[in-house]
Design a binder for these strands. Structure first.
Length: 608
DNA sequence: ACCAAATGTGCCCGTGTGGG
DNA sequence: CCCACACGGGCACATTTGGT
């Protein structure tokens, strides 16, 4: 059983805080994926990690269950980490206060009061850190939360409603303010009825929601694990210095949902949230319209999609070429063969089919060819009433196919060769390199393209053909409930799911950071050629005006070879493919595991 | 495991562009 | 005008991915 803990002191100390935050979030997502893999091998894993005030709980089902039965472990660790940082945080909060005379504008005061309320509310819930205050819920049920210690004549409400003088008064008397949670909010239960079953789409949305600060492309797990909580972020952090990157991972509705697990509403809300809670919470976050969108959209079958047609054509080409050379007969005779004849031909084909390089096809490829042949025969124009996948109609060929697959498995031709993901160092190196700087048309294009690939991956990033079709309208800007700005893909990967009202995948802003992806995107849009609507336009080498790009769109081949080019230009340790970007979290985890193993080994050898 | 769809990669051909 | 080069577009092939 493995246990990995990410301490508050991030392992990549020399990097920018946002780099660390990105890396930690990616690593935790990847760690969770790895826990799932370990669980498949019957290894039970339980771990929780603290980064700043965020706590991530990941592990196998039993591991998480155990972690949840021992909240004292988590609290102890959190309290320990918290105590180390508490002084610093209070110092920061003080720096916002009026008495230091450093801040005067209302917005800053409002934020400081908001933070103060979040800390007090968090304390009332028994959390070691900030928890967003559900003002709307409290407004509708004022007796649920009692606030003591506010300046005389000041009633509790949203900080935005106070005037500057009141905000100052509240901050001056901050030490007297205390919240008491009398009743946890329970209305979420009703949402269970509304939401119905949880599809993988909603599941993905759930993951994105709680992990919303960095949308991470993580390999999805099989649907049967649907009930599992991928990764639970149990507390909320509001970085005072970095207001735009407030990593409030737990929505207040989620918090309320977690309270459902408590039988007694008066009892302190537990630190863990069950998978069920998350499902309810996140579905509740969808408006009625979005719910129906999700339900209606489902998973459309693109039987006639360009790719399928291409695949069908390729499969038949392979069969025809093989048939012509093997039987010395015209390939067209395949179309009119009886099932019996076809069974015999396919039996031979499965045994003898070879690639253009005279290798055996891999199991996946052979399978793809087999399905292509079936699609061709059953589809127009032939529309034959046969199914070559069905044993009763094609017993000999299917028996042979299974046997060939067994052989391929033994020969190692059944395993999937995964794309090489990016190493942590390369990711950071690329972000720090001049290849992604904002000062030239080409590098700005690089930056925007990479950010889109990195943050959206399959869920909006698309491949070269999709990217070729991107327009300015393919992405939109939004602001979440905490005031954080983000960019979202207007359509998801299937291109059929409008998600403007509640985008699943978000590329969040990093205010003040020169590598802020949202700022870069905005700058890029401002430099685009107004006479073309394409998102990826050809850079002008030496622009003389504010227009940095010409009307020609960047083609599929250039888009398709972006990452290999960036790898070379940034002198990364490997030439990565575009697809590598999607696989990156897994590699980040491996990097962590290696570091962990190396550290453990060196410590062990020191002890010996 | 199965399946459709998407993607990576390489190749070829046509076209536009800039320098000699 | 010629030539080299870069790039778009299209295609073929092989493989991977994500949903069921």
């Amino acid at each position: 059983m493995a246990q990995i803990t990410v301490s508050t002191s991030a392992h990549c100390t020399e990097e920018h805080p946002s780099d660390k935050r990105i890396v930690v979030t990616l690593l935790m997502s990847a760690l969770d994926s790895m826990c799932k893999e370990l669980a498949k091998s019957r290894a039970e894993v339980a771990c929780f990690a603290v980064y700043n005030q965020e706590v991530f709980v990941v592990g196998s089902e039993r591991g998480r269950a155990y972690t949840n039965t021992r909240p004292d472990f988590q609290r102890g660790f959190v309290t320990y980490c918290e105590s180390e940082e508490k002084k610093g945080r209070e110092q920061k909060l003080k720096s916002y206060s009026y008495e230091h005379g450093e801040v005067s504008d209302k917005e800053t005061l409002r934020k400081a009061v908001e933070d103060l309320f979040c800390i007090c509310y968090g304390r009332a819930l028994g959390k070691p850190s900030l928890v967003p205050v559900p003002f709307d819920k409290i407004q509708s049920d004022p007796s649920a939360v009692v606030v003591n210690g506010l300046p005389e004549g000041v009633c509790f409400k949203e900080p935005a409603s106070y005037d500057t003088l009141t905000l100052k008064q509240i901050l001056e008397g901050q030490s007297h303010i205390a919240f008491t949670v009398k009743r946890a909010f329970l209305e979420q239960k009703e949402t269970k009825v509304i939401t119905g079953e949880h599809t993988n789409t909603t599941r993905e949305f759930e993951r994105r929601e709680y992990d919303s600060c960095i949308p991470v492309p993580v390999k999805a797990e099989p649907a049967e694990e649907h009930e599992d909580l991928e990764m639970t972020t149990v507390t909320v952090k509001e970085e005072l210095e970095d207001t735009g990157y407030n990593s409030s991972l737990l929505t207040d509705s989620a918090l309320q949902a977690s309270s459902e697990t408590s039988e007694d509403p008066e009892v302190e809300v537990t630190i863990e949230a069950s998978a069920d809670c998350w499902s309810k919470t996140c579905c509740f976050a969808l408006g009625d319209q979005q719910q129906s969108d999700f339900q209606l959209s489902g998973s459309p079958q693109h039987f006639n999609s360009k790719n399928t047609q291409c695949s069908t054509k390729w499969g038949m080409t392979v069969l025809r070429k093989w048939y012509q050379s093997h039987f010395r007969r015209p390939a067209s005779t395949i179309d009119s063969m009886s099932a019996l004849e076809l069974d015999e031909v396919l039996r031979e084909f499965y045994i003898n089919a070879k690639t253009s390089k005279k290798d055996k096809y891999t199991k996946n490829s052979l399978n793809a060819i087999r399905k292509s042949i079936n699609r061709y025969l059953r589809g127009p124009p032939l529309r034959r009433d046969i199914n070559i996948l069905c044993d009763s109609e094609f017993p000999a060929s299917n028996r042979t196919y299974r046997e060939v697959c067994r052989t391929l498995k033994i020969e190692g031709k059944a395993s999937t060769k995964h794309t090489t993901p990016m190493a942590v160092e390369d990711l950071v190196k690329l972000y720090q390199s001049s290849v992604l700087r904002l000062t030239t048309p080409q590098t700005l294009l690089n930056k925007v393209w990479f950010d889109i690939m990195f943050f959206f991956g399959r869920h909006g990033g698309g491949g070269r053909y999709t990217q070729r079709e991107f327009t300015r309208e393919s992405f939109g800007f939004g602001i979440d409930e905490y005031g954080r700005e983000f960019v979202y893909a207007v359509k998801d990967e299937r291109g059929d799911l409008e998600q403007q009202n509640c985008p699943k995948v978000r590329m969040y802003a990093l205010p003040g950071d020169p590598r802020c992806p949202v700022a870069a995107f905005q700058l890029y849009l401002s430099k685009l050629n107004p006479f073309s609507n394409a998102l990826f336009q050809h850079p002008i080498l030496h622009p003389s005006t504010d227009i940095w790009y010409n009307t020609k769109p960047v083609g599929v081949n250039v888009l398709g070879s972006m990452m290999p080019r960036l790898s070379k230009e940034a002198q990364l340790s490997a030439i990565y493919s575009n697809h590598s970007i999607r696989m990156t979290p897994i590699m980040l985890l491996q990097g962590l595991l290696q570091m962990h193993t190396t550290k453990a080994t060196s410590l062990k050898s020191k002890h010996q």
